[in-house]
């Protein structure tokens, strides 16, 4: 607003009087414009988060969760080796899933962006198609594919390559990665695709014109310019993977217990809401810390600043 005031010049007395600050009516307009967004943030983010934070210092008893102010829940969460190990494992699975997802999604996004016309529309539709079904169904389909009597084992046995079912296709960390990468492909592919799509083809030609072979065009032009897409995709997949618990449980068997399973258990079966809240806060804090540290390194601000540094 202050720039508007300067632009109007000295003839506009109101603007001059209020120059440097915000006029009364402007203040109301600003407030009105911000209100819906602020309300949304309050209702869906601040209130639940505040409530979780509050509950994490309460006490759960057999009679229910009662208000208190104590840090017993946190002490238990941070000192019990089980929870600590689970936290490390969850973060590790989140990181590995993100990396694997990036490695599979980037080529898909790149090929998609290089297509044109109807073929591109069809391929995009195919990419979206699985996501019209439920997340649980998409996870569940891997059981009849990878199970002992599943499609893969049947196929290999019919060909005579193996004589008894391979037992290691399911219920291990590999199966978790497979499931998570598959379930969240779209969240990685789409932002990268959009970022590559946005690159001016003349830049690629200019790089070639200046003597860059295709490999260098990719490394020096396409990859840096699609980096914001890579980051926002990675951010989403990492957050989703770290908080996942259905896919790991279904596909990982005994090794599929994630930190989120622990949290869910506190609320759904152990009736220890206060402890569940504390575990939630711990996970959120750790994820936030990782994002801050990793964000410094890879420039996450680009995601939010629209690719400008």
């Amino acid at each position: 607003m202050s720039t508007a005031a300067t632009d109007l010049g000295p003839s506009d007395s109101i603007a001059v009087k209020k120059a440097g600050g915000i006029g009364r009516s402007a203040r109301w307009t600003l407030f009105a414009l911000l209100a819906p967004g602020t309300a949304w943030l309050l209702v869906f983010i601040a209130v639940p988060l505040g409530f979780t934070l509050a509950m994490s210092v309460w006490k759960s008893t057999i009679l229910g969760t009662v208000p208190a102010f104590q840090f017993g829940n946190y002490i238990e969460a941070l000192t019990t080796p089980l929870y600590r190990d689970l936290l490390f494992k969850t973060v590790r699975i989140g990181v590995v899933t993100t990396v694997l997802s990036l490695l599979t999604s980037y080529p898909i996004a790149y090929c998609l962006a290089m297509q044109s016309g109807q073929r591109k529309a069809v391929l995009l539709l195919l990419l979206f198609l699985p996501f019209w079904t439920s997340y649980v169904v998409r996870t569940f389909v891997w059981l009849p594919i990878l199970g002992r009597t599943g499609a893969v084992n049947q196929f290999l046995m019919t060909l005579g390559i193996i004589h008894e079912p391979l037992p290691w296709l399911l219920y291990n960390e590999g199966a978790i990665y497979l499931g998570l990468v598959y379930v969240y492909t779209l969240f990685m592919t789409l932002p990268i695709y959009l970022a590559i799509e946005k690159i001016d083809p003349r830049l690629i030609e200019a790089a070639a014109d200046l003597g860059a072979k295709p490999r260098w065009v990719f490394l020096r032009i396409i990859l840096p310019l699609s980096w914001p897409g890579v980051l926002s995709g990675s951010l989403m997949v990492f957050l989703l993977a770290v908080s996942a618990y259905v896919t790991p449980q279904l596909l990982g068997g005994p090794s599929g217990i994630m930190f989120s399973n622990m949290i869910a258990d506190q609320f759904l079966s152990n009736n220890n809401w206060a402890f569940g809240a504390a575990l939630s806060i711990v996970l959120s804090a750790v994820v936030l810390l990782i994002l801050i540290v990793a964000g410094r390194w890879v420039g996450v601000h680009q995601v939010f600043a629209g690719g400008r540094t």
Binding site: D200, R202, L203, E205, A206, A207, D209, L210, I221
Partner: peptide, 10 residues
């Protein structure tokens, strides 16, 4: 070497 219509600066 080409100078492009939109210059195509990186």
């Amino acid at each position: 070497n080409m100078i492009f219509q939109n210059l195509a600066l990186f």
